[in-house]
Design a protein around this nucleic acid. Structure first.
Lengths: 236, 236
DNA sequence: CGACTGGTTGAGTGGTCTCAAGTCCTGTGG
DNA sequence: CCACAGGACTTGAGACCACTCAACCAGTCG
């Protein structure tokens, strides 16, 4: 899985979105020389729920899902990651095992920085913990919002909300600004929404009938953003 | 609402459970002289969802619920607090408004430290952000666990889980180690579990019939801990 | 060509919600 | 002291949303 050509952090296009965006040139060099970078094919796992963290992952390219597996075997996706996002720092900082599994939604390159070198990078860039702090605050807010949605909204509302979350997280297709910038299987969509596959399919079809969205293969075109927003919060 | 006798941080019994447990004596003095302490009666609100944070709250005595209000007016309790817990730091650090309301479940004293003094205390005790970081990690983990429960478990399972969470958070009655250390209304229990009041009551009654728990007024006695644990995760 | 994965639709069941009625308890005022 | 009001709690009945099971289709890959 080890890639031959290690990406250069200094030239990394996703770095501008990451915690390391303000790193000085020589610290960046240190980071660069101590990281290892791996390629994961679609469906491969970056780390498993229950395992101990050895370091920090940084997504270079590709999209990742982070999910928990229930006793019945059903996945619940609790977070999504894109280039520039860090993975596994909750367990690392909290001195905990991974409480979820990270899996590539599409072919991805993910850099790895071990615990010791992460500490060293932090010493050179003391603002990084602050940024992680803010990151965690946002994730906690999102998580609590989602708890409320799960508790109080119908599946239809949540499904519309999930489409809006996907848009916010991954943006739109650069070639076509009305098409979601991520393609997921129906199963993944159901596993974010927290519903059965069949229910997700039925409700997506309903939205298609209502002219809110359209399907183009696995891609989803948003036809009526305001309509989606209103379904996500007001109906019921 | 201002209390006459400001509690002394140096003697604060809840401080040993808080972020300030390792503060040096003179820093503690600074903290002490810059905080204000208020008494809230049962049902009174410490801060409201949507408002901007002015500082940090620290629970001295009493129990607090933190909840979000849905469009239908129904509360979803997303967190609980006890003496020693900090409130409002997510919004403060994340430079965000409060995304939930904090309300006293019983008469409570809550200290307040404004933003500026909080910064000063941090400068004197640089380990505090690290502790906040770890705190956030734990809260995020708990929140993600709860998302999974909401998504995949039946109300019955979640209700048993909530009883276990209450036990973990508030412990047992010091007078009687089999009785939960917190008394909530059925409505609050329903609002943590994410269900209707009537459903919560029905399922609690079922558990009583099954000999898992017993009611003593509003207090809940746990008769079969292992049984509860198995209901919380295995049944379905 | 089969096997397999992802997607779709139908039918039936049941868990959970809502509405409604009624009881119990506590505090308050006459 | 009693009557009453109001809040918390309980139970019943009916409706409906969402789940499960099952069958089937379309595309892909070896």
């Amino acid at each position: 899985m080890k890639s031959k050509n290690q990406p250069d952090c200094e030239r990394c296009i996703s770095r501008k979105d990451s915690l390391f965006k303000d790193l000085a040139s020589d610290d960046l060099c240190h980071l660069n020389s101590h990281k290892t970078c791996n390629v994961y094919r679609k469906g491969q796992v970056i780390f498993y729920e229950g395992n101990s963290p050895m370091g920090l992952y940084c997504v270079n390219t590709g999209k990742i899902k982070i999910y928990k597996t229930g006793s019945s075997g059903k996945e619940q996706i609790v977070r999504l990651a894109k280039p520039g996002d860090l993975l596994g720092y909750r367990a690392l900082i909290g001195d905990d095992v991974y409480t979820a599994t990270a899996e590539a939604l599409e072919d991805a390159t993910v850099c790895f920085l071990d615990k010791k070198n992460f500490q060293q990078v932090i010493e050179h860039a003391p603002d990084i913990p602050n940024q992680i702090l803010r990151n965690l605050c946002n994730e906690l807010r999102d998580a609590e919002n989602f708890i409320q949605s799960m508790a109080q909204k119908s599946v239809r509302e949540r499904l519309a909300e999930v489409l809006l979350i996907l848009r916010k997280k991954y943006g739109m297709d650069p070639q076509d600004q009305a098409v979601l910038g991520v393609t997921l299987t129906r199963e993944d969509i159901a596993n974010i929404t927290g519903t059965a596959i069949e229910t997700a399919i039925r409700l997506l079809s309903d939205m298609k009938e209502e002219g809110l969205i359209a399907f183009e293969g696995r891609r989803i075109r948003i036809l009526d953003m305001d309509g989606l927003i209103s379904v996500a919060s007001l109906d019921h």
